[in-house]
Each structure stands twice: as C-alpha cells, then as structure tokens.
C-alpha cells in the first residue's frame, strides 16, 4: 500500500463502520423477532415484514407518503425550472445575489423554516387573517394541518435541491447550441422544446430523484405542518422505534418504505432514458 492511500483510510473506515455496517445491521434487525425483555430477540422471522405488508393501514400510509413525495417533486420542478433558467441567463453579480437567495433556505434550520410556514399558513396565520380582513372568506381556510400545507412547506424546504442540478446542467450547455438551432430555422419556442429541455433532462432527473428521496423521508415538516392529522411513514417509523420501542418492526417499516421509494426512482429513471448521455 502506498502512502497516498493513507489519505483515504479514515474516510473509508468511517463509511464502512458508520454507514455500511449499520445499514446491514438494519436488515438483520428487521428479521429479528420482538422480545419482551430487550430491543429484539435471537433467531430470524419474517413476521415484521408480513405485519407491515398485510396491513391496509400501512399501505394507506405508504400511499400517502409516496403521493406527497410525488406532489412535492412535481411542485419543486414546476417552480425550480423557471428559476434555474432565469439564473442561467443572469450575468455575473446579480446572479450571485439570486443564487444566494436560492441557497438561503439551506442555511436556516428545517425546524425554523417549517415554523415560518406555520406562521404563514396557520388557522390564525398571515394568509388566513389576510383573507378575512379583505373579506375573501369568513371561515378558516384549511391551509395547514392537511396535505396542502405539508406539500407547500416541503417544496420550500427542498427547492434548492431541484434548482442547483438543473442550473448546473443549463450552465454547462454550450450557448452556441441554441444559436445553431436558430440558424437551422427553429423558432425560440422550438429551440427550447427540442434542444434546451432535452439537454436539461439530466439535471431535471437528478433534481427530481433528490427531492423525491428527501421528501418521502422527511419527518419534521410533516409533523409541524400536518399537526399529526396527516400520517406519513417516517412518523410511524419514529413512533414505532421511540414510543413503542419495537425495533424489528420499525426496521421493517423503514426498509419497506426505502425499497418502495427506490422502486419508484427506478421506474422514473426507466421512463426518462437518455441514451446520448453516456
């Protein structure tokens, strides 16, 4: 082993001992029986998986979680693409400011951001007060404690993860490509549809995958904005682990969610192939 390899040794140890081993351990524990006098017992069982997979209650929750993830991803894409496009077209200094705004949510804790949304969307929040003051409505607009509030806040929380990869892709694009399209007779709209959009696809793809994965495993935002009235899988997993102390079941729950999330990502990638890009 040469001396340069020593540079990677600490990182390799950390990743091996603190990522690979614990993940393997989750798989093992998910197949352990529950034990009354410890976190889990000896031997192996499929009971935890069966318990989750045969219970309609879980399926509803998995459905809710994946659906919220999908809505969040779609919303983030809808809002993120115009911003990335705008950023890519903005020159130097003013781009730096706009980019700082885009990244600013990342520098503020997730609890704070979710809290900000409760102030805006709450029953006595800014929007509801505004609606009543202006006479748009006299009842309370249900903006929070439901899926709408969760999705709005989740979009906000993860929007930078959509914008940055798309921006990266657009910035890497040779500006001559658009001109080439125009010189060949394509109007600006056609250039956008036939050239810009397909070339932005790799960025869109990774942005979508990141936002989807992050939003189906989000915990704080759904709890604060959903007020426990909307149940998602991460909440259930935390309940099972912390409150009920049933580790094997919690492990199975989280693995099933991750597996289904991974499956959704695979389907998405299969549906958006890019043969040219490698």
């Amino acid at each position: 082993m040469n001396r340069r390899a020593l540079l990677i040794l600490p990182a390799a140890l950390i990743l091996l001992l603190l990522v690979a081993a614990p993940y393997l351990n989750i798989v093992v524990i998910s197949a352990r029986p529950t034990s009354p006098d410890g976190a889990y017992g000896g031997g192996f069982t499929t009971a935890n998986y069966v318990a989750v997979l045969t219970d309609a209650y879980y399926w509803r929750q998995i459905g809710t979680t994946l659906w919220l993830g999908l809505l969040t991803t779609a919303g983030a894409l809808l809002l993120g693409f115009p911003v990335a496009w705008n950023l890519a077209r903005t020159p130097g200094r003013s781009q730096a400011l706009r980019q700082a705004i885009v990244l600013s949510p990342l520098l503020v804790g997730i609890v704070v951001r979710s809290y900000g949304w409760t102030i805006i969307l709450g029953n006595n929040g800014i929007l509801n007060r505004l609606a009543r003051a202006t006479g748009i409505t006299h009842s309370i607009l249900p903006l929070m404690y439901n899926r709408l509030g969760i999705v709005v806040a989740l979009i906000h929380v993860f929007l930078p993860f959509m914008i940055m990869p798309i921006l990266g892709g657009l910035q890497n694009m040779d500006p001559a490509l658009e001109q080439a399209g125009r010189s060949l007779g394509a109007a600006p709209g056609t250039v956008f549809r036939r050239i810009v959009l397909p070339l932005a696809m790799p960025g869109i793809q990774s942005g979508c995958v990141m936002v989807f994965v992050l939003s189906i495993s989000a915990y704080v935002t759904p709890v604060l904005l959903g007020g426990m009235r909307v149940k998602t899988m991460p909440m259930t997993v935390v309940n099972t682990l912390i409150d009920s102390f049933r580790w094997p079941l919690g492990a199975a729950e989280s693995l099933i969610l991750s597996f289904l999330g991974g499956l959704a990502v695979m389907v998405f990638l299969r549906l958006t192939p890019m043969r040219w890009n490698r």
Partner: peptide
C-alpha cells in the same frame, strides 16, 4: 459516490441504523 452517499441516503434511515448499531 461513497463520500456523497451519507447525503443521498435518507437521513432518518441512517440515524436509525446508527441507533441500532
């Protein structure tokens, strides 16, 4: 890929893994 993995893996799952471990 390995170095970015902790960022891409679900935070809750990684934390659960460490808890058990």
């Amino acid at each position: 890929i390995a170095m970015l993995a902790p960022m891409l893996l679900p935070e809750v799952l990684t934390a659960i893994g460490l808890l058990f471990y």
